[in-house]
Design a protein around this nucleic acid. Structure first.
Lengths: 194, 194, 194, 194
DNA sequence: TATGAATGAGACTTCATTCAT
DNA sequence: GATGAATGAAGTCTCATTCAT
């Protein structure tokens, strides 16, 4: 049947435009009309794909978060030894934050702002489970400090967001050496002191 | 001086209202009229104290950032030994972020969002110098890892923001033990390996 | 004939949907999309049967008005005595207004609103002629007051609309006794005083 | 104190513009922008006086209805004999409907349309009590038919709306004779048969 | 014929800012 | 200095209508 389909391309263009504009101008200062223009559609078309502006932002958040965790765990297997597993995951995250800078920046803005519904926020968190499982394993094996997941995340993962944002601001250039130092710091901060 | 006729109380009320509303609703969704109402002032009055909305937010940012750094370094002296000095500063920062939660939250939102002018952002950063000097001293003495200030900040200081925000979201409760663990992680991540 | 290829069922569904929605929500608040949905048809399909929204409403009005007058005069014959003829017509009208409540309600809304073209309004009035003829006969025979048709209509027929609408609003329940009282009033108000 | 006051004149201009435009174009086809223009204010100003479009229409309805009943009962006293009282009230209503044609037309449109909130509709009905009391008295004295208020209203009062609207449409001209005939019909239809 | 997607125009409403007192 | 009223500009969203299949 030759029914027209809502084009996934249009939806993607809208999501991408949202990320770009929110990153550069903030949620305030990102009118629907600009999003439409950047995505090459009529403003009215947005409402075929999303309920309203809030929904557009929520869905964009969920989608980007999913891409983030998918990338993070794509090559990970839960049979890996703890340190190797952590190193793998950490590097994938670093990779994502540096290569998919726009996506990472968008997530940072969403995570530090009341612009996302609580429900969507929860939806976004769900897929981080493998990392938490790894840490649980590490704690049992005495390799990871016996501290809360939140503390581990704060020290092992979150600093990458800060570095990514600082680089984006042009303050400095993250090179391979910085990353090695960063990994060193991350691992130091969570590994159990023998 | 004409300036002095303006009531400092009103200005403070406006700054406080701005912080509250931006924290709870975001910069978008914080109209001048609401700020005025919460500060018990006419909308027109805001313009006696600030040029426009952007100026109000910028000045609020600068003021809060100043309070933050003032508190941080209030009892610090640059003659202290490196580790003791760091411990002192770190604890003051932790203190501030947990006790002045609203202020800290506001800074986090500003720092992860294009809602502040670049100029005001620079103005806010200036006063962190004593910490950078301490680190420089630590590196020279071989106590601190010889890595970029940005990396040190990312691992030693920034995680506190994440923990503060996570607590604010109600995900978990930061107690004294967590803070000790956090300090341990912070110091582990920046101290030079012997 | 090309016209016949169009499904009369679809047209009827559209007319019915229009009546329902306009009755319940008003002409404002009755978008074409809702009409289409209620008629189980695509919005675009409406335009195969009607020129535009105004035309849809006009045609609906004309059709309902025709059903009204057809029903009214179905069993009437212009050879009947005046009073018997009037009683017959009056009761048919009362019947219609109470049984075809939706249709009657729709007419009332159209007749008290500028939502119908003047042309369609005229078209709708045409078929009331037999009643006017009856009155003319009645006046000549000295049975009906020698007053304008408009006055007769206002007192003999129009009150039924008011009663129907009041009942629809749930204010009271029209029973057989009310109807007899109503007929009594109607006839009293137009019959010539001996 | 020199505080500016919300001007009652502006409010009145808005109410009047609403009546005019709704009468001529219908509720649909009466955008806020046109109302603002006709009242010589900015669209935004409307929202200083009314919550939203629905509220504007509701309040307009209530105000006009109040004017209607005030006028109706202005010279009435509940000590008058029944027939005299009814004649007085009936003539005041006729007066109002013919002289304040715009107001009456607006009420007719509101009363036959779902454009007014149920709550406002109830509010509007309240003030008709003196007429209902008169009828009650009339029934007790055996002067008025022992039938429901709704039926009395349908035959004694409502026809005036029909006549007013018919005249407004230009179909015919209501003169003094018509009015006398109309009163005759009204009274005939509700007075008890001796 | 029939449709779901698409859209330009325009609706309602909000808001940062100014004005008159 | 302080204010409540006022507003032009702009924002979100809807809708009658058309297009492409």
């Amino acid at each position: 049947m030759a029914k027209l389909q809502k084009s996934i391309d249009k939806r993607n263009a809208l999501v991408k435009a949202t990320i770009d504009l929110v990153n550069n101008n903030g949620f305030h200062a990102t009118p629907m009309s600009k999003i439409a223009k950047m995505a090459n559609v009529s403003p009215a078309t947005i409402y075929l794909y999303f309920e309203n502006k809030q929904d557009l932002v929520n869905q964009t958040y969920i989608q980007v978060k999913a891409e983030y965790t998918n990338y993070t765990f794509a090559t990970y297997e839960d049979t890996m030894p703890v340190e190797a597993g952590f190193a793998l995951i950490w590097n994938r995250i670093a990779d994502f934050k540096l290569k998919e800078c726009d996506n990472a920046l968008f997530l940072a803005q969403c995570d530090n702002t009341p612009m996302i519904d609580e429900e969507s926020r929860q939806e976004g968190i769900k897929h981080l489970q493998p990392l938490l499982d790894l840490w649980e394993r590490g704690r049992k094996e005495g390799i990871i400090k016996p501290v809360s997941d939140y503390v581990l995340y704060a020290y092992a993962i979150n600093p990458l967001s800060f570095l990514m944002m600082t680089e984006k601001r042009g303050a400095f250039q993250l090179d391979k050496t910085h990353l090695e130092e960063a990994y060193e710091s991350a691992w130091s901060s969570i590994k159990a002191c023998k």
